[in-house]
C-alpha cells in the first residue's frame, strides 16, 4: 500500500500540483459567477480552499514518519495555498469591499478576525518568496528551515480567522483548527524526542 502510493507519487511530476491548483482556482472563480452573491462566495471559497491546501502542505512531513513520501509536492502545494490566500485577500479588497479604502482601513484596524487573517497572510509572504532553490542556498538549510517553521503559526492564524468569521461555531471550523493544532503539537513532540535522542 505504502509502496504503491510512493511509486505512483514518483511517477507524477511536481508541476502537476501547479496545473491542478490553477485549474481549481479557475473553477472556483467560474462557479461563483452563477451564484446570487458571487463576490462573497468567491471570497469564502478561495479562503477555505487556501486553508485546506495549507493544512495539506503541513501534512507532508508527518506522513513521511509513516513511510509516505510526498516531499517533492510540498513546495508546489505551499505555493498554491499561498496563491489561494492571496486571491482571497484580493477578492476581499477589490470585489467585496470594492476598494472603499476608508472602510478597508477601518476593518484592518478594528476587527480582530481581519487582523488575525492579515497577520496570517503577511507571515506567508516570506515563505512564498523563499520557496525556491536559490533562496535555500542563499539562506542556508538551517536558517531556511527555521524560517519555514512560520508555516505553522501562519496556518494556525488562518484557522483561527476561519473560526472567528462564523456567526456560530461550526464543526467545519473546529476541524480545521484541531487539524492545525494537532499537526503543530505532533511536530513539537517529534522534535523534542529527537532532541532527547541526540542529547
Amino acid at each position: 500500500m505504502l509502496n504503491a502510493i510512493n511509486q505512483t507519487a514518483r511517477r507524477i511530476p511536481a508541476y502537476t500540483i501547479y496545473i491542478a491548483g490553477i485549474a481549481l482556482a479557475a473553477w472556483v472563480i467560474f462557479s461563483s459567477l452563477s451564484t446570487p452573491d458571487p463576490a462573497k462566495v468567491l471570497e469564502r471559497t478561495l479562503g477555505t480552499r487556501g486553508l485546506q491546501i495549507l493544512i495539506a502542505t503541513l501534512c507532508i512531513t508527518p506522513l513521511r514518519w509513516y513511510g509516505v513520501n510526498l516531499l517533492k509536492f510540498r513546495r508546489a502545494l505551499g505555493l498554491m495555498g499561498f496563491m489561494f490566500i492571496a486571491l482571497h485577500l484580493t477578492t476581499w479588497v477589490v470585489l467585496d469591499l470594492a476598494l472603499r479604502w476608508s472602510e478597508i482601513l477601518t476593518e484592518l484596524t478594528k476587527r480582530p478576525f481581519i487582523i488575525v487573517g492579515m497577520l496570517a497572510f503577511v507571515a506567508l509572504i516570506p515563505l512564498a518568496v523563499t520557496s525556491n532553490n536559490a533562496m535555500i542556498e542563499r539562506l542556508g538549510a538551517l536558517r531556511w528551515k527555521r524560517l519555514h517553521w512560520l508555516a505553522y503559526p501562519a496556518t494556525l492564524a488562518g484557522a483561527v480567522h476561519f473560526v472567528m468569521i462564523g456567526k456560530v461555531y461550526t464543526l467545519e471550523s473546529a476541524l480545521y483548527f484541531a487539524a492545525v493544532a494537532g499537526l503543530l503539537i505532533a511536530r513539537r513532540l517529534k522534535a523534542r524526542k529527537k532532541a532527547l535522542q541526540t542529547a
Binding site: 472602510e103 476593518e107 478576525f113
Partner: peptide, 10 residues
C-alpha cells in the same frame, strides 16, 4: 466584526 456602513446589493 464588520462595518454596517455599506452593503452588497445581491
Amino acid at each position: 466584526r464588520w462595518s454596517q456602513a455599506s452593503e452588497r446589493r445581491i
